[in-house]
């Protein structure tokens, strides 16, 4: 059986975030290099059909931070979920380069693992890490994201059937309709679905035991809001969710029926749902010891582990803007 390959998060930083960082750096943070908490968000994976070639093009598994990242409760569009990150801005490029990246990510990983073991809650599972250096005079922002993920040993495997369209695997449209309605009301990062006597119910992961009490394994589904739009690759959040389930409910989760939720709109008549469904399983292992973790984002052009630069001079430097205005 093939190993499940997860589509990693890709960071998308809106220019508003850098504008706000400039303001924060001058007015609030000043010379402080303390870590603060910021907000990010991700939404269901989207794809677009190219009208000229007929291909579906996936629009990336994005985690977005924007202008509202420093606020307490940012606004969210429907079918998007909010996640928190640890943000650290360095004063010099030398400090930025010299920072002990391994230690930084290990701190976050430990926090996530503690939240799994002690509080058994899922709110920190997608926590990210962001380090920056802002060269305010040149309008250049060096940054590096990490999306910590636990490495399961052995790896999760997808059943022979592979990933299928959710409406092929889950009986008819009825279930998906009610899941859609429930998610539209309260969009959750992770959720449970059960079916009893033709009625579909959606619940939160934290109530796993009560929710699934007396429900046959084939009527249980674990769902998550999937930022990936690639048919064979579930998004990054599933990785830590599976680790969570393994660690907290080891006896019931050697095989998990997974629903990758990808529908932001109710499909129009005749069109299939975009969500995917698959059964993943894992071999013998010790789920209760802390697994190793990975997560630094690779540079999109070189695919190496390295920081990136956002050069906003063309959009921020008053001189260049003045030249451009004719």
């Amino acid at each position: 059986m093939p190993v499940v390959q997860f589509a990693p998060f890709a960071s998308l930083v809106q220019p508003g975030f850098w504008h706000e960082l400039t303001r924060m750096k001058i007015d609030v943070l000043r010379l402080s290099e303390d870590a603060i908490t910021v907000n990010g968000s991700y939404s269901v994976g989207r794809s677009i059909r190219d009208r000229e070639t007929g291909h579906d093009i996936a629009l990336g598994c994005n985690l977005t931070v924007g202008e509202d990242a420093y606020q307490k409760a940012p606004q969210l569009s429907p079918m998007s979920v909010h996640t928190t990150g640890i943000f650290k801005n360095f004063n010099t490029i030398e400090d930025f380069k010299a920072a002990d990246k391994a230690a930084l990510i290990n701190d976050v990983v430990s926090k996530i693992w503690d939240s799994i073991i002690t509080t058994k809650d899922t709110s920190l599972l997608t926590q990210f890490l962001l380090i920056t250096f802002a060269d305010l005079k040149k309008y250049q922002y060096f940054y590096w994201f990490a999306f910590p993920a636990f490495v399961s040993k052995p790896a999760w495997q997808i059943s022979e059937n592979g990933w299928k369209q959710a409406d092929e695997e889950i009986q008819g449209h009825f279930q998906l309709e009610s899941i859609y309605d429930s998610l539209l009301k309260t969009t959750r990062s992770f959720f449970l679905v059960k079916e009893i006597g033709g009625i579909t119910e959606v619940g939160s992961i934290e109530q796993y035991e009560e929710f699934f009490a007396g429900v046959a394994p084939e009527n249980r589904v674990i769902g998550f809001l999937d930022p990936s739009a690639l048919p064979e690759n579930p998004g990054w959040p599933l990785r830590n969710l599976l680790t969570f389930l393994r660690a907290v409910y080891p006896s019931q989760t050697s095989s998990v029926r997974v629903l990758c939720w990808r529908d932001s709109e109710r499909p129009t008549a005749g069109k299939p749902w975009r969500s995917r469904f698959g059964v993943v399983s894992i071999g013998e292992g010790d789920p209760t010891t802390k697994p190793s973790a990975i997560g630094w984002e690779r540079h999109p052009t070189t695919n190496k582990l390295s920081a990136r630069v956002a050069d906003l001079a063309p959009m921020m430097d008053p001189k260049r803007l003045a030249d451009q205005a004719v």
């Binding site: 589509a7 291909h55 996936a58 990336g60 739009a229 999109p300």
Partner: peptide, 18 residues
């Protein structure tokens, strides 16, 4: 091994934007 390899060009399927 569980991280998606970045190159997935495949005819007919869904293509990743990057």
């Amino acid at each position: 091994e569980a991280t998606m390899a970045p190159v997935v060009p495949k005819a007919g399927g869904v293509i990743d934007a990057s």
